[in-house]
Nucleic acid binder design. Structure first.
Lengths: 231, 231
DNA sequence: TGTTCCAATTAAACGGCGTGTATTAATAAG
DNA sequence: CTTATTAATACACGCCGTTTAATTGGAACA
């Protein structure tokens, strides 16, 4: 029984690994149960012992990929001392971009239409990783909030009720000094990191600029400057 | 011959219209030649008389959708007098977001993985529409450049060689006073508009905030403020 | 040891898909 | 009226996700 479970987990991991390889080679749409089975010397139907449906496999993959992305960002963030909140934001942003450039298919899997008819489930590991990423960003904003607050004092009032109930609970526990506007600011930070990154990954900048790295750096520099952090 | 051409154009338009309807109903992946043919009372193979392959049809659709998006943005922009460059940028941004919310599938078609195995061709109508959108944004930035220049004077130097040759030719003809940094700034503006919009359309904000409209408005307001335009 | 049981796997099938190809019907051109 | 072009068809091919029934093989128990 124990042995059986280990074999099962191992096979499940192999399925995911091969799915990742197929995705890296031929894009997210190259993930097909038949191709995976072919690669493993199995039959397509056999995979249904491990994943009830193809979307379940995709969901598991999204969880793994998202986790790897957030891991990379957090490692880069933690390499910068907490006394430099602007540097931590910059590190997060640049690590995210570098991860995306190194794993474009993973980025599409997370932030785009992952695969033909896939629709994400309500919960699942992807959702959890997303919450983790969001929490990381909120922490970055919270660490800089005293200076941000001074500059954004004229900001429109936000209310806790504007945001997701569970997220609010977490935020008020972990960052008791952060007002609702801090979450709104976090979303703006997220959006600013995401915008150029998505345009670049999906090839929309290629027809304009040869290397968007400088533009992205300038934009992130402007971001932390507008947050009131020197650099 | 004339009559033949007219019928051909009409049928081609009907194919695209039905494809748009299918996309609006069931997402970009609902576009299948068989489904279109079924809807038209034809055979799947017949469509190959009008579009050599399914990707060609998608390409044509992308051109149409992109054009409609840029049209909406330009109409909104032109409703604001040229004496208010900040308002014109704001109008462009909000019209783009509203278009995206009204046509989420269209947004995915343009900015995401349009459809299973599709890869955009080098030229084509989609590229032209993208150039048109980019030109519109450059125009907006150029109109505000004198104030922008004052605030971003410490910006890192850009060179014309950093950008696409054809685009540079157009820019130097249409906006002779805009330096290379103006194109970089345009990309940053584009990215800032795109970021929150993409996150929202792909459902990543839904788990955080109930209505991102205010955040988007704040972000765009901050954008034109950082450009040195009052509001 | 022999037997029972159960999870893993297979083979086959269903319907749907994009894409070609050979063929037939219609229509414009000479 | 004849001929060349072209739209449309029918059919075949190989891919896909998913389901079902039959088969295997190892674990557990007597």
């Amino acid at each position: 029984m124990r042995r059986r479970d280990r074999l099962r987990a191992q096979t499940s991991a192999e399925i995911k690994a091969i799915a990742m390889k197929l995705m890296a080679d031929g894009g997210p749409d190259a993930i097909s149960l038949r191709a995976i089975a072919r690669e493993m010397g199995m039959t397509a139907g056999a995979i249904y012992s491990y994943f009830a449906t193809r979307d379940d496999l995709i969901t598991a993959l999204i969880g793994d990929v998202y986790t790897s992305a957030v891991d990379a960002a957090e490692v880069a963030r933690d390499a910068v001392p907490e006394t430099d909140p602007g540097g931590r934001i910059l590190a997060w942003a640049q690590a995210s971009r570098e991860w995306a450039l190194a794993n474009p298919e993973g980025f599409r899997l997370i932030y785009g239409d992952p695969v033909p008819g896939y629709r994400p489930p309500g919960d699942g590991p992807g959702k959890q990783a997303e919450i983790r990423a969001c929490s990381g960003l909120i922490g970055l904003v919270a660490a800089a909030w005293t200076t941000v607050q001074a500059r954004q004092s004229e900001d429109r009032a936000y209310d806790w009720a504007d945001f997701d109930r569970d997220l609010v609970a977490h935020v008020r526990k972990d960052f008791p000094d952060l007002p609702p506007a801090g979450i709104a600011m976090t979303l703006r930070v997220w959006g600013r990191m995401h915008g150029l990154m998505a345009l670049e990954i999906y090839g929309h900048l290629r027809t304009v600029i040869h290397d968007p790295a400088t533009v992205y750096r300038d934009e992130m520099h402007d971001l932390i400057a507008s947050l009131g952090l020197i650099s």
